[in-house]
Nucleic acid binder design. Sequence first.
DNA 1: TGTACATCAGTGAACGCGCGTTCACTGATGTAC
DNA 2: TGTACATCAGTGAACGCGCGTTCACTGATGTAC
Lengths: 223, 223
Amino acid sequence: MARTDGTGAESPRERYRSQVREEIKAHAWEQIATAGASALSVNAIARRMGLSGPALYRYFAGRDELITELVRDAYRSLADALGAAAAGGADLSGLAHALRGWALADPQRYFLVYGTPVPGYHAPADTTAVADEVMRTLVDACAALAPAGPEAGEAPFATHLLGHRDWAGEQPAPPEVLHRFLVFWTRLHGVLSLELAGHFTGMGFRPELLFEAELESLLAPRF
Amino acid sequence: MARTDGTGAESPRERYRSQVREEIKAHAWEQIATAGASALSVNAIARRMGLSGPALYRYFAGRDELITELVRDAYRSLADALGAAAAGGADLSGLAHALRGWALADPQRYFLVYGTPVPGYHAPADTTAVADEVMRTLVDACAALAPAGPEAGEAPFATHLLGHRDWAGEQPAPPEVLHRFLVFWTRLHGVLSLELAGHFTGMGFRPELLFEAELESLLAPRF
DNA sequence: TGTACATCAGTGAACGCGCGTTCACTGATGTAC
DNA sequence: TGTACATCAGTGAACGCGCGTTCACTGATGTAC
């Protein structure tokens, strides 16, 4: 409300505010990377920034709103990463590598979105909208792929999907396309989550090669 | 030391002790299911049992030891579930269903083993021994399966595994067998973890059918 | 079998700690005339 | 340009809370003669 000229330009104060907000979130991510999301503390962030605890309440209504904002940002950045790849002409394989890059860049961010849920916590409605955006990008890339074998649409699970694809929007893609999307999601998540959780450390093989092998498997006509 | 007759029989006090220990752990699991592992509180458990907080220190050195014990039990019960299935003649498919049953029986227990790691926490050495036991059971079942296609051993990832299979013991299985084991692990974990985390809710399809489809895919000669 | 003693489960008070959050304030920054 | 005023970022004290953990204790249970 500080400006009424309708240009949308930010006043210095508004600029400062959003700058500090970002700085708070940056410290929050740092803390999450160190001790996990459940250990996130408003006071600890303030301390690290050289501020008193209550100061942060100028920028966030409380701890919950801060966490919600972090979840929102995480979803948003994933949607942007995949969207940018798709806009740059990436096919399903390219999106897989974009996903992997995004996950490796910040494992705790990946886990905040796809990791162990906190019982009782429910994501706000607008994050599911972003999740839909991610889904649509991936489904589109699946649809653009060379079609699956002719019998793929008659596989038991594809048949089941035929009657349960409301989640895929108004004009849902064919069941074998949706099936491939789900396989893309679950297979790559399977490798990524175990890799990021450290379950492969000490085994000696290179996880990215397993990722590539799984990617190949789901790109095949018979996935 | 209460008994010296070497029979290994427990004195009433010893019996009582282990009984209370189990009761504490049962309440701990209940609390984990309600609010997640990071919210586990010694005092809250004591309260629920009608005891004072310090009383639990007769049974556990502290919160950390209690959690470690829970992790150990979780691994142990998975190894037992799979071991029992294998002893009962279950093939790889049977083990997959045993795994799924174990996971669904207590999602938070599954997540304690395979979920988001707490940065900094390292599992004690003897849990990795149980993890090895689980692995061996699964690898054996993979080896007992009808062999993969002849070209499976020459796939890029199998070739890589040929040089990196120390984790599979003294006489490691052939690379295509190990590859199938890893695919078993990652694909089924991919479906299970997303399902248990609730990422499929609202989509309407039945997750167990996706699980079955993924299981079929990895049983195929060309997985 | 009865008695003296040792073991040990459980208590209540207390410790220091860090948390989220509120409140009344001060002082700097920006706005209006 | 200078002055009066409003806005608002940040402070310090305080709140109640629950946590993990220690300690000296009491009283019941089990053991030894």
